[in-house]
Amino acid sequence: MRLYSKYLAITLKAHLQYPGSFFLLTISQTLFPLSMLVGVHGLFLRFGRLGDWTFPEVALCFGVIHLVFGLSECFSRGFDSFSLLVRNGEFDRLLVRPQSTVVQVLGSRFEFNRIGRLLQGLLVLGWALLNADVAWSVAKGVTVALMIISGYCLFTGFFILQATMSFWTIQGLEVGNILVDGGRELAQYPLSIYKDWVVRFFTWIIPLGSINYLPLLFLLDRSEGVALGHMLSPLVGVLFLIPCLLVWQLGVKHYQSTGS
């Protein structure tokens, strides 16, 4: 952890060497999610509502997703851009240092300009929490925090899987995009608007639903069955990291036996 914060500090220092470019990137990073938001809002203006959901409720899903995605891109970018590290041979360097590869890859890169997306997500989430029809309680506050933590873990897990793929093919990036970009796109809306098989897949196989849809039901007192289950469902996202890290270890083994 101490080492991780050192990595953070040194990267921040490096980024601040180019304030102009940092500023430009931060601004431009907000544009894409912003245009998505304008699009969603426009659709609500035209159609009135989306199934059982109002705009603030959808905005809540949207805000959570973009917030956690921004967090992961900011703090787990090392895995997201890992194929670069393999391609230019820098991964060799990490292997001759006496630290775990996970910490070193995490520390290899941070994208602070993602703060644009992150803040925007936070703002939308804040607005949505105030405007959605939520009867607040301590448990619900905890749930919101859990959603954010678990979302960060889940996307970091996706990044790790994506990075692992680049041990086999340097073109690993695109494969991972299905999970990362597709998942982000999908989870901007409450899962229930999709077909049943989509809902099932993203609840049980890839636990995307657990970071916003299921806990959202709890926040809105719409959960069926065990409320506690809905409240704690975000923990699944944290657990998701475990298999990802195991696969990562396999990938490192493979790299060591084949070379780049």
Partner: peptide
């Protein structure tokens, strides 16, 4: 290849 951080 360098092992030093380029910008600091």
């Amino acid at each position: 290849r360098s092992q030093l951080w380029w910008d600091v």
